Amino acid sequence: MIDDKKKPRRLGKGLSAIFGDDEPDAPAAEATPTGTPPLPRSLPTSYLTPGRYQPRRRFEAEAMEQLITSVREQGVVQPLIVRPLGDNRYEIVAGERRWRAAQAVQLHEVPVVIRDMTDRQALEVSLLENIQRQDLTPLEEADGYRRLMDEFGHTQEALANHLGKSRSHIANTLRLLNLPESVRELVESGSLSAGHARALLTLPNPEAVAEQIIAKKLSVRAVEQMAQRAKDGKPLTPAPVAKPRRVKAVAGGAKDPDTLALEADLSHKLGVAVEIVTDGEAGQLVLHYATLEQLDDLLQRIG
């Protein structure tokens, strides 16, 4: 249970609690006489325990292997944020993946910054650290936004301003929580993209369409077209994917078959219409999107 009943603070205050900036209600466990932030110190890995407010529900094996390799070669570079529990026990507020990687390579100690935090502050800092590092899945991110709003009183607009996200991104991400559990599990596992999931929200039977997406490898655009057909009262069958807009002639002639094939292949992989305009060695790669949802899915695909 969150034990801090104070009024909602600016979102950035949660991270300020880590470094000692402007946080009179969260005194540092190792504060210096001048009030400067506490310096990192080393603690045995056995003294640490996972945080109760960790927003991450899955630790992807491939990402963990990469982190383990990095820790094996360079050690834990960024200190963990912990808070004291007493009897040489400390709860991890931020950095559980680094702690797990350190254990995997049998490091006996890790660098930490110790802070006294209330349950409320620990939850806020843990959520913010993960969201700002973009380490969460779309649904973990959505759940983080929901908890920041429900438990700290933040608005969607405040979240957008402080996290550098668009207001529509916050709103669309939160909508993912309205999906059926079976579909959410497919998003969590990576079988469906966030763009697919948002398109499914408007369909009467998202579970059945989710199965079609996976079986037929449907693009986000195709699912959006299905949603539009459902809205118009038409059968839920995928509409043909729109072909890329063609350039009649480039450098005095029509496009060669290889260029056309490459356009089609890229269109299939990116889920949007692709146009390649060439003039000798130079040229342009043009991506055509029809909706902001489609653009958001494209941006996620290309990182």
Rank of each mutant, 00 (worst) to 15 (best):
E60V: 15
D87H: 11
L287Q: 06
D279F: 15
A249E: 14
K269W: 10
A199P: 01
S42F: 12
L260E: 14
E62I: 13
L159E: 00
L236V: 01
G75L: 05
I276Q: 02
P44R: 11
G95C: 01
S46G: 02
D256C: 08
L200K: 00
Q225E: 15
D135W: 10
R229A: 15
Y53T: 05
I114T: 13
R147G: 00
Y90H: 08
S193L: 06
Q78F: 12
G35W: 11
P27K: 03
G253N: 14
N130R: 09
E30P: 00
A102H: 03
K243C: 04
A29S: 13
Q78H: 12
K6D: 13
K13T: 15
G233C: 05
L85M: 14
R98C: 09
R9L: 15
L285C: 10
A122N: 00
P240C: 06
M149I: 07
L136G: 03
P204N: 06
K269F: 11
L298V: 05
R72A: 15
P180Q: 03
Q294R: 09
N178F: 11
K6V: 12
Y289W: 13
S267P: 13
E129S: 12
T49K: 14
T36A: 15
P111Y: 02
K248L: 15
Y53R: 06
T291A: 09
K231A: 14
I68F: 08
L67A: 04
K13P: 00
F152T: 03
V183I: 07
R72H: 13
P257Q: 08
D119N: 12
G95V: 01
H268Y: 10
T291Q: 06
L67Y: 10
L48H: 01
E109W: 08
D22F: 12
E91V: 08
Q74D: 11
G271H: 06
V220Q: 02
R89M: 11
M226E: 00
A31V: 12
A199T: 02
G144Y: 01
K165R: 15
G271D: 09
R167Y: 14
D25I: 09
R58N: 08
G95H: 01
L174A: 04
N205M: 06
F19Q: 08
P180W: 01
I131M: 13
A208E: 15
I92E: 02
V223D: 01
Q78W: 10
T49Y: 07
R100F: 12
K234P: 09
L85W: 05
A102N: 02
G233M: 05
T49I: 15
E275Q: 15
N172P: 00
Q103C: 13
G86D: 08
G271K: 06
A251M: 12
I170R: 04
A227L: 06
A290N: 14
D279Q: 14
Y90I: 03
L159S: 00
A230N: 08
L260W: 02
L107H: 03
Q121A: 10
P206E: 05
E275G: 11
S46L: 04
N161C: 07
P204G: 06
L107I: 05
H288I: 13
R175W: 08
E157F: 08
E207F: 07
L201R: 07
